[in-house]
Design a binder for these strands. Structure first.
Lengths: 125, 125
DNA sequence: TTGCGAATGTTATATTATAACATCATCCGC
DNA sequence: GCGGATGATGTTATAATATAACATTCGCAA
C-alpha cells in the first residue's frame, strides 16, 4: 500500500527524507508551509500511515520514522544509534519460547510488539 | 537495592500492590493523602526507582510497574495481556545475531532496550 | 553547630496526543 | 443533475504526560 492522499504523501516523503525519527510537532513545523496548522492534522495522517504499515512509531522516543519495508504494525525491531541517531528497522525474531518458561504465561499469544534497542552503531563506537 | 526513602517506599509499595501498569498521574492521585501534590514529586521518585532497577517504565503505555526481580535498566521483556492488563517481566533474549544480517549494523552494540509485547495470556484466550 | 548534599516542596511550563465538531470532496445510485 | 453516504480535511479546544527552575528541609558528618 502506498500513501493514499496528497497529505499522506507529503508527510511520508518528509519522513523518508529524514534519516532520524521525527516528533509529531517537528513534522508539523516542517509542513506549515504546505497548509498544516494543527497537531490533529498531523496525528490523523500519521495514524493512517501507521495503519498502512508505512510508518513506525518509536515508543521510547515518541517519534516516527518511514519504514523501509512495509510491515504489519508491531512486527519489527528498531535499532537506534545513540551516537548518530540513525535507525534501522529489521524483522522481529520469534520469542514465543521465552514465554514458555513462565507459569501462567506459557500460552501467551503475542499480537503487537514494540522492540526498541538503543546502542552504538559500528561507525559510532 | 531497596527503596531508600519513605517516599520511594510508598510509591514502590503502591506499584507492587497494583497488578497492572500505573500512569504517573494515577500514582499522584493515589498518593495525595500521603502528601504528594505535584507531578514533579512523582517523577522524581519514579526516576530514582527506575535508576535502582526497582521499577520499569512501559513505554508503549506511558506507565510504570514494580519489578519482581531487580534488573538493569533496559534489560527485560515485558509481556502485557490485552485482556486482563496483567504484566510479566522476563529476561531479555540475545538479539545480537539479528544485527549481523544488516550492512552497517553488524557491529551494533545494544545498550538499553524496550521490548514490549502485547497479546493474550492463557487465561484470556 | 554548621555546612554539605540529597531529598522534598512548589510553581510554572513544555511536550505529546486526542476530542469534538464543521466543512469539503468524491463517488455512487437514482 | 440531485441527494446522500463516506472519508479526508480544517479548526478550536483541551487532555495527558513530563520537565525546568528554584526554594526549603532533613540527615549526617566534620
Amino acid at each position: 500500500m502506498k500513501p493514499q492522499t496528497p497529505r499522506q504523501q507529503l508527510i511520508f516523503d518528509f519522513l523518508q527524507q529524514k534519516k532520524t525519527p521525527q516528533g509529531a510537532y517537528d513534522i508539523l513545523d516542517a509542513c506549515r508551509d504546505h497548509g498544516f496548522r494543527a497537531p490533529s492534522q498531523i496525528y490523523r495522517v500519521l495514524n493512517k500511515l501507521l495503519e498502512y504499515g508505512l510508518v513506525h512509531k518509536v515508543e521510547s522516543l515518541n517519534a516516527y520514522i518511514a519504514c523501509e519495508q512495509q510491515h504489519d504494525i508491531g512486527q519489527s525491531i528498531v535499532a537506534i544509534c545513540n551516537g548518530c541517531g540513525l535507525v534501522k528497522e529489521m524483522p522481529i525474531p520469534d520469542f514465543t519460547d521465552q514465554f514458555k518458561k513462565f507459569d501462567g504465561w506459557d500460552g501467551f499469544i503475542p499480537q503487537q510488539m514494540a522492540v526498541e534497542v538503543k546502542g552504538r552503531c559500528s561507525s559510532c563506537n
